[in-house]
Design a binder for these strands. Structure first.
Lengths: 240, 240
DNA sequence: CCGCATTGGATCGCGCACAGACCATTAACA
DNA sequence: TGTTAATGGTCTGTGCGCGATCCAATGCGG
Protein backbone atom coordinates (compact mmCIF):
# COMPACT_ATOMS: atom_id res chain seq x y z
CA UNK A 1 0.00 0.00 0.00
CA UNK A 2 1.20 3.44 -0.81
CA UNK A 3 -1.01 6.28 0.42
CA UNK A 4 -0.39 9.62 -1.17
CA UNK A 5 2.12 11.57 0.78
CA UNK A 6 2.49 15.27 1.34
CA UNK A 7 5.71 16.75 -0.07
CA UNK A 8 8.28 17.13 2.71
CA UNK A 9 8.98 20.85 2.36
CA UNK A 10 5.31 21.72 2.33
CA UNK A 11 4.72 19.44 5.30
CA UNK A 12 7.41 21.26 7.26
CA UNK A 13 5.65 24.51 6.55
CA UNK A 14 2.10 23.40 7.21
CA UNK A 15 2.75 21.12 10.15
CA UNK A 16 5.16 23.45 11.87
CA UNK A 17 4.64 23.86 15.63
CA UNK A 18 1.38 25.47 16.64
CA UNK A 19 2.84 27.21 19.64
CA UNK A 20 6.53 27.84 20.16
CA UNK A 21 7.34 27.42 23.83
CA UNK A 22 5.07 28.44 26.65
CA UNK A 23 3.28 31.73 27.11
CA UNK A 24 5.95 33.06 29.41
CA UNK A 25 8.77 32.48 26.94
CA UNK A 26 6.75 33.87 24.07
CA UNK A 27 6.03 36.98 26.07
CA UNK A 28 9.67 37.43 27.04
CA UNK A 29 10.63 37.15 23.40
CA UNK A 30 8.06 39.73 22.40
CA UNK A 31 9.11 42.24 25.03
CA UNK A 32 12.80 41.80 24.27
CA UNK A 33 11.93 42.30 20.62
CA UNK A 34 10.22 45.59 21.37
CA UNK A 35 13.21 46.75 23.38
CA UNK A 36 15.98 45.53 21.11
CA UNK A 37 14.30 46.80 17.94
CA UNK A 38 14.15 50.18 19.59
CA UNK A 39 10.38 50.44 19.41
CA UNK A 40 10.44 51.55 23.03
CA UNK A 41 13.46 53.83 23.31
CA UNK A 42 15.62 53.82 26.46
CA UNK A 43 13.77 55.70 29.16
CA UNK A 44 10.47 55.08 27.38
CA UNK A 45 7.48 53.72 29.21
CA UNK A 46 5.69 50.49 28.40
CA UNK A 47 1.90 50.46 28.34
CA UNK A 48 0.29 49.72 31.72
CA UNK A 49 0.23 46.05 32.64
CA UNK A 50 -3.51 45.74 32.29
CA UNK A 51 -3.51 47.19 28.79
CA UNK A 52 -0.41 45.33 27.68
CA UNK A 53 -1.68 41.96 28.88
CA UNK A 54 -4.92 42.57 27.01
CA UNK A 55 -3.05 43.46 23.82
CA UNK A 56 -0.80 40.43 24.04
CA UNK A 57 -3.78 38.23 24.77
CA UNK A 58 -2.26 36.82 27.95
CA UNK A 59 -3.15 37.09 31.61
CA UNK A 60 -1.69 39.81 33.72
CA UNK A 61 -0.06 37.20 35.92
CA UNK A 62 1.92 35.79 33.02
CA UNK A 63 2.88 39.21 31.76
CA UNK A 64 4.12 40.13 35.21
CA UNK A 65 6.29 37.02 35.35
CA UNK A 66 7.95 38.14 32.14
CA UNK A 67 8.33 41.72 33.34
CA UNK A 68 9.85 40.47 36.57
CA UNK A 69 12.42 38.49 34.60
CA UNK A 70 13.20 41.54 32.48
CA UNK A 71 13.58 43.53 35.65
CA UNK A 72 16.08 41.07 37.08
CA UNK A 73 18.01 41.02 33.81
CA UNK A 74 18.25 44.80 33.98
CA UNK A 75 16.20 45.57 30.88
CA UNK A 76 13.34 47.39 32.56
CA UNK A 77 12.50 49.13 35.80
CA UNK A 78 9.11 49.51 37.48
CA UNK A 79 7.67 52.35 39.52
CA UNK A 80 4.40 52.19 41.39
CA UNK A 81 1.70 54.75 41.84
CA UNK A 82 -0.13 56.99 39.47
CA UNK A 83 2.08 58.16 36.60
CA UNK A 84 4.29 55.20 37.44
CA UNK A 85 4.78 52.30 35.09
CA UNK A 86 7.45 50.08 33.62
CA UNK A 87 10.33 51.87 31.95
CA UNK A 88 13.07 50.68 29.62
CA UNK A 89 16.48 51.12 31.22
CA UNK A 90 19.13 52.82 29.11
CA UNK A 91 21.75 50.36 27.82
CA UNK A 92 21.06 47.31 29.96
CA UNK A 93 23.79 44.89 30.95
CA UNK A 94 24.47 43.48 27.52
CA UNK A 95 25.56 40.03 28.43
CA UNK A 96 26.02 38.16 25.18
CA UNK A 97 24.31 34.79 25.43
CA UNK A 98 26.44 32.33 23.52
CA UNK A 99 24.05 29.83 22.01
CA UNK A 100 24.80 27.10 19.50
CA UNK A 101 25.86 28.44 16.08
CA UNK A 102 22.94 28.58 13.66
CA UNK A 103 22.83 26.08 10.81
CA UNK A 104 23.58 27.31 7.27
CA UNK A 105 20.06 26.32 6.25
CA UNK A 106 18.56 28.47 8.99
CA UNK A 107 20.74 31.40 7.88
CA UNK A 108 19.69 31.02 4.27
CA UNK A 109 16.05 30.69 5.31
CA UNK A 110 16.14 33.88 7.33
CA UNK A 111 18.00 35.83 4.67
CA UNK A 112 15.58 34.74 1.96
CA UNK A 113 12.52 35.72 3.94
CA UNK A 114 14.13 38.97 4.93
CA UNK A 115 14.94 39.86 1.35
CA UNK A 116 11.42 39.19 0.18
CA UNK A 117 9.77 41.08 3.03
CA UNK A 118 12.00 44.13 3.20
CA UNK A 119 12.35 44.77 -0.52
CA UNK A 120 8.61 44.29 -0.80
CA UNK A 121 7.99 46.69 2.07
CA UNK A 122 10.19 49.36 0.54
CA UNK A 123 8.47 49.04 -2.81
CA UNK A 124 5.02 49.10 -1.24
CA UNK A 125 5.81 52.10 0.92
CA UNK A 126 7.07 54.00 -2.12
CA UNK A 127 3.86 53.23 -3.97
CA UNK A 128 1.71 54.83 -1.30
CA UNK A 129 0.74 58.42 -0.76
CA UNK A 130 2.45 59.07 2.55
CA UNK A 131 1.10 61.61 4.99
CA UNK A 132 3.33 64.39 6.36
CA UNK A 133 3.56 62.67 9.73
CA UNK A 134 4.90 59.45 8.22
CA UNK A 135 7.34 61.36 6.03
CA UNK A 136 8.65 63.21 9.06
CA UNK A 137 8.98 59.98 10.99
CA UNK A 138 10.99 58.38 8.22
CA UNK A 139 13.35 61.33 8.02
CA UNK A 140 13.74 61.39 11.79
CA UNK A 141 14.66 57.70 11.91
CA UNK A 142 17.12 58.21 9.08
CA UNK A 143 18.73 61.08 10.97
CA UNK A 144 18.88 59.06 14.22
CA UNK A 145 20.51 56.26 12.36
CA UNK A 146 23.17 58.45 10.81
CA UNK A 147 24.03 60.33 13.97
CA UNK A 148 23.85 57.44 16.43
CA UNK A 149 26.96 56.26 18.27
CA UNK A 150 28.19 52.78 17.26
CA UNK A 151 26.70 51.26 20.42
CA UNK A 152 23.23 52.36 19.35
CA UNK A 153 23.63 51.50 15.70
CA UNK A 154 21.87 48.17 15.79
CA UNK A 155 18.86 49.67 17.50
CA UNK A 156 18.47 52.77 15.34
CA UNK A 157 19.05 50.68 12.22
CA UNK A 158 16.25 48.31 13.21
CA UNK A 159 14.10 51.31 14.02
CA UNK A 160 14.52 52.73 10.53
CA UNK A 161 13.73 49.46 8.83
CA UNK A 162 10.68 49.10 11.02
CA UNK A 163 9.60 52.62 10.13
CA UNK A 164 9.72 51.68 6.46
CA UNK A 165 7.56 48.66 7.13
CA UNK A 166 5.15 50.81 9.11
CA UNK A 167 4.90 53.18 6.17
CA UNK A 168 3.24 50.43 4.15
CA UNK A 169 0.22 50.76 6.43
CA UNK A 170 -0.14 46.99 6.53
CA UNK A 171 0.05 45.70 10.12
CA UNK A 172 0.68 42.10 9.04
CA UNK A 173 3.61 43.14 6.92
CA UNK A 174 5.00 45.27 9.74
CA UNK A 175 4.75 42.35 12.13
CA UNK A 176 6.41 40.00 9.68
CA UNK A 177 9.29 42.41 9.14
CA UNK A 178 9.70 42.83 12.90
CA UNK A 179 9.86 39.08 13.35
CA UNK A 180 12.39 38.44 10.63
CA UNK A 181 14.42 41.36 11.87
CA UNK A 182 14.58 39.76 15.31
CA UNK A 183 15.80 36.56 13.76
CA UNK A 184 18.39 38.53 11.86
CA UNK A 185 19.59 40.30 14.97
CA UNK A 186 19.96 36.92 16.66
CA UNK A 187 22.18 35.81 13.79
CA UNK A 188 24.21 39.00 13.88
CA UNK A 189 24.78 38.48 17.59
CA UNK A 190 26.64 35.29 16.72
CA UNK A 191 29.20 37.20 14.67
CA UNK A 192 32.39 38.20 16.47
CA UNK A 193 32.78 41.73 15.17
CA UNK A 194 30.92 43.95 12.79
CA UNK A 195 33.03 45.54 10.06
CA UNK A 196 33.00 49.31 9.82
CA UNK A 197 30.72 49.58 6.81
CA UNK A 198 28.41 51.86 8.69
CA UNK A 199 29.10 54.87 6.52
CA UNK A 200 28.30 52.81 3.49
CA UNK A 201 25.08 51.76 5.15
CA UNK A 202 24.14 55.33 5.91
CA UNK A 203 24.39 56.30 2.27
CA UNK A 204 22.24 53.34 1.29
CA UNK A 205 19.69 54.24 3.93
CA UNK A 206 19.48 57.71 2.46
CA UNK A 207 18.91 56.30 -1.02
CA UNK A 208 16.14 54.04 0.21
CA UNK A 209 14.31 56.73 2.13
CA UNK A 210 14.65 59.21 -0.72
CA UNK A 211 13.21 56.73 -3.20
CA UNK A 212 10.29 56.09 -0.87
CA UNK A 213 9.64 59.77 -0.27
CA UNK A 214 9.88 60.42 -4.00
CA UNK A 215 7.33 57.73 -4.68
CA UNK A 216 9.61 55.64 -6.86
CA UNK A 217 8.83 51.97 -6.13
CA UNK A 218 11.40 50.32 -8.44
CA UNK A 219 14.16 52.56 -7.11
CA UNK A 220 13.13 51.83 -3.53
CA UNK A 221 13.22 48.11 -4.18
CA UNK A 222 16.59 48.27 -5.88
CA UNK A 223 18.11 50.44 -3.18
CA UNK A 224 16.82 48.16 -0.45
CA UNK A 225 18.09 45.08 -2.29
CA UNK A 226 21.57 46.55 -2.52
CA UNK A 227 21.47 47.48 1.13
CA UNK A 228 20.45 44.00 2.22
CA UNK A 229 23.11 42.37 0.07
CA UNK A 230 25.80 43.72 2.36
CA UNK A 231 24.50 42.13 5.52
CA UNK A 232 23.62 38.98 3.62
CA UNK A 233 27.11 38.34 2.29
CA UNK A 234 28.53 39.24 5.67
CA UNK A 235 26.41 36.61 7.39
CA UNK A 236 26.99 34.04 4.69
CA UNK A 237 30.70 34.52 5.06
CA UNK A 238 30.68 33.98 8.78
CA UNK A 239 27.99 31.38 9.19
CA UNK A 240 27.25 29.57 5.97
CA UNK B 1 4.53 64.34 32.43
CA UNK B 2 4.85 62.95 28.96
CA UNK B 3 6.67 59.62 28.71
CA UNK B 4 7.86 58.73 25.24
CA UNK B 5 5.25 56.70 23.47
CA UNK B 6 5.54 53.95 20.92
CA UNK B 7 4.00 54.79 17.52
CA UNK B 8 0.56 53.23 17.23
CA UNK B 9 1.10 51.19 14.07
CA UNK B 10 4.30 49.70 15.37
CA UNK B 11 2.67 48.98 18.70
CA UNK B 12 -0.10 47.08 16.95
CA UNK B 13 2.50 44.97 15.22
CA UNK B 14 4.77 44.34 18.20
CA UNK B 15 2.13 43.94 20.88
CA UNK B 16 -0.15 41.79 18.78
CA UNK B 17 -1.58 38.73 20.56
CA UNK B 18 0.97 36.13 21.60
CA UNK B 19 -1.36 33.22 21.01
CA UNK B 20 -4.49 33.34 18.92
CA UNK B 21 -7.13 31.20 20.56
CA UNK B 22 -6.49 27.95 22.37
CA UNK B 23 -4.47 25.01 21.15
CA UNK B 24 -7.52 23.18 19.90
CA UNK B 25 -8.67 26.05 17.69
CA UNK B 26 -5.18 26.66 16.38
CA UNK B 27 -4.88 23.01 15.50
CA UNK B 28 -8.24 22.94 13.76
CA UNK B 29 -7.19 25.94 11.71
CA UNK B 30 -3.93 24.30 10.75
CA UNK B 31 -5.53 21.05 9.67
CA UNK B 32 -8.24 22.79 7.69
CA UNK B 33 -5.51 24.83 6.06
CA UNK B 34 -3.68 21.69 4.98
CA UNK B 35 -6.87 20.24 3.55
CA UNK B 36 -8.23 23.35 1.89
CA UNK B 37 -4.90 24.32 0.36
CA UNK B 38 -4.80 20.89 -1.18
CA UNK B 39 -1.56 19.91 0.52
CA UNK B 40 -3.23 16.63 1.40
CA UNK B 41 -5.26 15.68 -1.66
CA UNK B 42 -8.67 14.01 -1.29
CA UNK B 43 -8.09 10.39 -0.38
CA UNK B 44 -4.63 11.24 0.93
CA UNK B 45 -3.48 10.11 4.32
CA UNK B 46 -2.41 12.37 7.16
CA UNK B 47 0.70 11.49 9.13
CA UNK B 48 0.07 9.19 12.12
CA UNK B 49 -1.28 10.94 15.18
CA UNK B 50 1.88 10.47 17.18
CA UNK B 51 4.07 11.99 14.50
CA UNK B 52 1.64 14.78 13.68
CA UNK B 53 1.18 15.83 17.30
CA UNK B 54 4.95 15.93 17.69
CA UNK B 55 5.32 18.08 14.58
CA UNK B 56 2.60 20.47 15.67
CA UNK B 57 4.10 20.67 19.13
CA UNK B 58 0.86 19.71 20.84
CA UNK B 59 -0.26 16.70 22.83
CA UNK B 60 -1.86 13.78 21.13
CA UNK B 61 -5.01 14.32 23.15
CA UNK B 62 -5.46 17.82 21.77
CA UNK B 63 -4.72 16.71 18.23
CA UNK B 64 -7.29 13.97 18.55
CA UNK B 65 -9.91 16.44 19.70
CA UNK B 66 -9.32 18.42 16.52
CA UNK B 67 -9.36 15.30 14.35
CA UNK B 68 -12.61 14.21 15.98
CA UNK B 69 -14.17 17.55 15.12
CA UNK B 70 -12.93 17.23 11.54
CA UNK B 71 -14.40 13.76 11.43
CA UNK B 72 -17.79 14.99 12.54
CA UNK B 73 -17.68 17.81 10.03
CA UNK B 74 -17.00 15.27 7.30
CA UNK B 75 -13.52 16.45 6.36
CA UNK B 76 -11.61 13.34 7.35
CA UNK B 77 -12.16 9.69 8.10
CA UNK B 78 -10.17 7.42 10.40
CA UNK B 79 -9.33 3.75 10.05
CA UNK B 80 -7.71 1.69 12.74
CA UNK B 81 -5.08 -1.02 12.51
CA UNK B 82 -1.77 -1.25 10.75
CA UNK B 83 -1.77 0.63 7.44
CA UNK B 84 -4.76 2.50 8.82
CA UNK B 85 -4.70 6.20 9.55
CA UNK B 86 -6.67 9.36 9.03
CA UNK B 87 -7.68 10.09 5.47
CA UNK B 88 -9.02 13.20 3.77
CA UNK B 89 -12.51 12.62 2.46
CA UNK B 90 -13.16 13.65 -1.14
CA UNK B 91 -15.26 16.82 -1.37
CA UNK B 92 -16.58 17.14 2.16
CA UNK B 93 -19.92 18.71 2.92
CA UNK B 94 -19.02 22.23 1.91
CA UNK B 95 -21.23 24.17 4.25
CA UNK B 96 -20.34 27.80 3.78
CA UNK B 97 -19.92 29.44 7.15
CA UNK B 98 -21.24 32.96 6.86
CA UNK B 99 -19.16 35.10 9.18
CA UNK B 100 -19.16 38.86 9.51
CA UNK B 101 -17.89 40.63 6.37
CA UNK B 102 -14.20 41.52 6.63
CA UNK B 103 -13.26 45.16 7.08
CA UNK B 104 -11.70 47.02 4.14
CA UNK B 105 -8.55 47.52 6.19
CA UNK B 106 -8.23 43.79 6.76
CA UNK B 107 -8.70 43.17 3.03
CA UNK B 108 -6.04 45.71 2.12
CA UNK B 109 -3.70 44.29 4.76
CA UNK B 110 -4.04 40.76 3.42
CA UNK B 111 -3.67 41.81 -0.20
CA UNK B 112 -0.55 43.83 0.55
CA UNK B 113 1.14 41.03 2.42
CA UNK B 114 0.13 38.58 -0.25
CA UNK B 115 1.57 40.70 -3.02
CA UNK B 116 4.88 41.09 -1.24
CA UNK B 117 5.21 37.42 -0.35
CA UNK B 118 4.07 35.84 -3.58
CA UNK B 119 5.90 38.12 -6.00
CA UNK B 120 8.96 37.68 -3.82
CA UNK B 121 8.56 33.92 -3.82
CA UNK B 122 8.24 33.78 -7.61
CA UNK B 123 11.33 35.91 -8.06
CA UNK B 124 13.32 33.89 -5.53
CA UNK B 125 12.28 30.59 -7.04
CA UNK B 126 13.33 31.78 -10.50
CA UNK B 127 16.73 32.79 -9.14
CA UNK B 128 17.47 29.31 -7.85
CA UNK B 129 18.89 26.31 -9.62
CA UNK B 130 15.92 23.96 -9.40
CA UNK B 131 16.36 20.20 -9.32
CA UNK B 132 14.55 17.97 -11.81
CA UNK B 133 12.13 16.81 -9.10
CA UNK B 134 11.05 20.34 -8.25
CA UNK B 135 10.69 21.21 -11.92
CA UNK B 136 8.49 18.18 -12.47
CA UNK B 137 6.39 19.05 -9.45
CA UNK B 138 5.82 22.58 -10.71
CA UNK B 139 4.75 21.33 -14.12
CA UNK B 140 2.46 18.75 -12.55
CA UNK B 141 0.73 21.34 -10.39
CA UNK B 142 0.33 23.60 -13.40
CA UNK B 143 -1.25 20.77 -15.34
CA UNK B 144 -3.59 19.85 -12.45
CA UNK B 145 -4.64 23.44 -12.25
CA UNK B 146 -5.42 23.73 -15.92
CA UNK B 147 -7.32 20.47 -16.16
CA UNK B 148 -9.19 20.64 -12.86
CA UNK B 149 -12.96 20.89 -12.80
CA UNK B 150 -14.30 24.23 -11.48
CA UNK B 151 -15.14 22.66 -8.12
CA UNK B 152 -11.48 21.80 -7.58
CA UNK B 153 -10.10 25.04 -8.93
CA UNK B 154 -9.57 26.77 -5.62
CA UNK B 155 -7.64 23.82 -4.27
CA UNK B 156 -5.42 23.17 -7.27
CA UNK B 157 -4.76 26.90 -7.61
CA UNK B 158 -3.61 27.08 -4.00
CA UNK B 159 -1.53 23.98 -4.58
CA UNK B 160 0.32 25.59 -7.47
CA UNK B 161 1.04 28.76 -5.57
CA UNK B 162 2.28 26.69 -2.66
CA UNK B 163 4.50 24.71 -5.00
CA UNK B 164 6.11 27.95 -6.16
CA UNK B 165 6.75 28.95 -2.57
CA UNK B 166 8.20 25.52 -1.88
CA UNK B 167 10.55 25.96 -4.81
CA UNK B 168 12.29 28.79 -2.97
CA UNK B 169 13.61 26.21 -0.53
CA UNK B 170 12.90 28.55 2.38
CA UNK B 171 10.54 26.92 4.89
CA UNK B 172 9.70 30.22 6.59
CA UNK B 173 8.68 31.77 3.31
CA UNK B 174 6.62 28.73 2.41
CA UNK B 175 4.83 28.92 5.75
CA UNK B 176 4.17 32.62 5.37
CA UNK B 177 2.72 32.11 1.89
CA UNK B 178 0.52 29.30 3.17
CA UNK B 179 -0.79 31.52 5.94
CA UNK B 180 -1.57 34.49 3.76
CA UNK B 181 -3.15 32.17 1.23
CA UNK B 182 -5.48 30.87 3.92
CA UNK B 183 -6.47 34.39 4.80
CA UNK B 184 -7.09 35.07 1.13
CA UNK B 185 -9.26 31.99 0.75
CA UNK B 186 -11.28 33.13 3.75
CA UNK B 187 -11.88 36.44 2.00
CA UNK B 188 -12.77 34.76 -1.28
CA UNK B 189 -15.31 32.63 0.57
CA UNK B 190 -17.18 35.83 1.41
CA UNK B 191 -17.71 36.61 -2.27
CA UNK B 192 -20.99 35.44 -3.80
CA UNK B 193 -19.72 34.10 -7.10
CA UNK B 194 -16.41 33.87 -8.83
CA UNK B 195 -16.30 35.26 -12.37
CA UNK B 196 -15.22 32.92 -15.11
CA UNK B 197 -11.72 34.30 -15.58
CA UNK B 198 -10.23 30.91 -15.07
CA UNK B 199 -8.87 30.60 -18.57
CA UNK B 200 -7.14 33.90 -18.15
CA UNK B 201 -5.68 32.64 -14.91
CA UNK B 202 -4.42 29.50 -16.57
CA UNK B 203 -2.47 31.48 -19.13
CA UNK B 204 -0.97 33.60 -16.37
CA UNK B 205 -0.04 30.50 -14.41
CA UNK B 206 1.79 29.19 -17.43
CA UNK B 207 3.70 32.43 -17.81
CA UNK B 208 4.75 32.38 -14.19
CA UNK B 209 5.91 28.78 -14.19
CA UNK B 210 7.74 29.22 -17.47
CA UNK B 211 9.59 32.26 -16.16
CA UNK B 212 10.59 30.32 -13.06
CA UNK B 213 11.73 27.28 -15.02
CA UNK B 214 13.65 29.54 -17.41
CA UNK B 215 15.41 31.16 -14.48
CA UNK B 216 14.18 34.67 -15.25
CA UNK B 217 13.51 36.39 -11.90
CA UNK B 218 12.21 39.74 -13.19
CA UNK B 219 9.83 38.02 -15.60
CA UNK B 220 8.61 35.72 -12.83
CA UNK B 221 7.95 38.68 -10.55
CA UNK B 222 6.14 40.60 -13.27
CA UNK B 223 4.02 37.65 -14.30
CA UNK B 224 3.07 36.93 -10.71
CA UNK B 225 2.24 40.58 -10.08
CA UNK B 226 -0.12 40.63 -13.07
CA UNK B 227 -1.72 37.43 -11.92
CA UNK B 228 -2.33 38.71 -8.41
CA UNK B 229 -3.78 41.97 -9.67
CA UNK B 230 -6.83 40.12 -10.96
CA UNK B 231 -7.82 38.64 -7.62
CA UNK B 232 -6.91 41.85 -5.86
CA UNK B 233 -9.21 44.07 -7.89
CA UNK B 234 -11.93 41.45 -7.64
CA UNK B 235 -11.74 41.46 -3.86
CA UNK B 236 -11.45 45.22 -3.65
CA UNK B 237 -14.54 45.54 -5.76
CA UNK B 238 -16.60 43.27 -3.57
CA UNK B 239 -15.29 44.06 -0.15
CA UNK B 240 -13.46 47.36 -0.04
C1' DC C 1 -2.80 69.33 52.99
C1' DC C 2 -6.31 66.04 51.50
C1' DG C 3 -8.73 63.01 48.20
C1' DC C 4 -8.47 60.13 44.51
C1' DA C 5 -7.46 58.14 40.17
C1' DT C 6 -3.97 55.29 38.34
C1' DT C 7 -0.56 52.13 38.50
C1' DG C 8 2.25 48.09 40.17
C1' DG C 9 2.00 43.97 43.55
C1' DA C 10 -0.08 39.73 45.40
C1' DT C 11 -3.13 35.73 46.10
C1' DC C 12 -6.69 31.88 45.22
C1' DG C 13 -9.53 28.57 42.76
C1' DC C 14 -10.52 26.73 38.10
C1' DG C 15 -9.95 24.54 33.69
C1' DC C 16 -7.33 23.30 29.76
C1' DA C 17 -3.45 21.06 27.82
C1' DC C 18 0.18 17.76 28.60
C1' DA C 19 2.79 13.42 29.24
C1' DG C 20 2.75 8.72 29.49
C1' DA C 21 1.01 4.36 29.63
C1' DC C 22 -2.09 0.96 28.13
C1' DC C 23 -5.94 -1.22 25.12
C1' DA C 24 -8.17 -2.50 20.53
C1' DT C 25 -7.91 -3.32 15.81
C1' DT C 26 -6.23 -4.34 11.38
C1' DA C 27 -3.67 -5.84 7.16
C1' DA C 28 0.67 -7.43 5.34
C1' DC C 29 3.76 -11.17 5.49
C1' DA C 30 6.01 -15.39 6.44
C1' DT D 1 -3.16 -19.41 9.00
C1' DG D 2 -0.85 -17.48 12.67
C1' DT D 3 2.37 -13.51 13.86
C1' DT D 4 3.36 -8.97 14.26
C1' DA D 5 4.08 -4.22 13.63
C1' DA D 6 1.73 -0.05 13.14
C1' DT D 7 -2.11 2.60 14.04
C1' DG D 8 -6.29 4.69 16.25
C1' DG D 9 -8.77 4.80 20.93
C1' DT D 10 -8.87 5.55 26.09
C1' DC D 11 -7.64 6.83 30.75
C1' DT D 12 -5.28 9.28 34.83
C1' DG D 13 -2.56 12.34 37.29
C1' DT D 14 0.05 16.90 36.89
C1' DG D 15 1.18 21.63 36.01
C1' DC D 16 0.60 25.96 33.79
C1' DG D 17 -2.00 29.84 32.51
C1' DC D 18 -6.28 32.35 33.42
C1' DG D 19 -9.79 35.26 35.63
C1' DA D 20 -10.94 37.85 39.46
C1' DT D 21 -10.27 40.36 43.44
C1' DC D 22 -7.99 42.76 46.67
C1' DC D 23 -3.76 45.52 48.56
C1' DA D 24 -0.08 49.18 48.30
C1' DA D 25 2.04 53.14 46.61
C1' DT D 26 2.25 57.69 44.53
C1' DG D 27 1.76 62.14 42.43
C1' DC D 28 -1.59 65.53 40.55
C1' DG D 29 -5.74 68.59 41.36
C1' DG D 30 -8.46 70.83 44.53
Amino acid sequence: MHPEQVPPVLADALFRPVRTGNAFEETMERMLQAIRLGAIPPGGRLPPERELSARLGISRVTLREALRALQESGHVESRRGRYGGTFVRPVPTHRAVAGPPPSPEAVEDTLTLRFVLETGAAETAAARALGPQVRRHLRACLQDCASAPPTDYRRTDSRLHLAIAEATGAPSLTGAVADVRSRLNALLAAIPRIPANIEHSDAQHRDIVNAILDGDPPAARTAMAEHLAGTASLLRGFLA
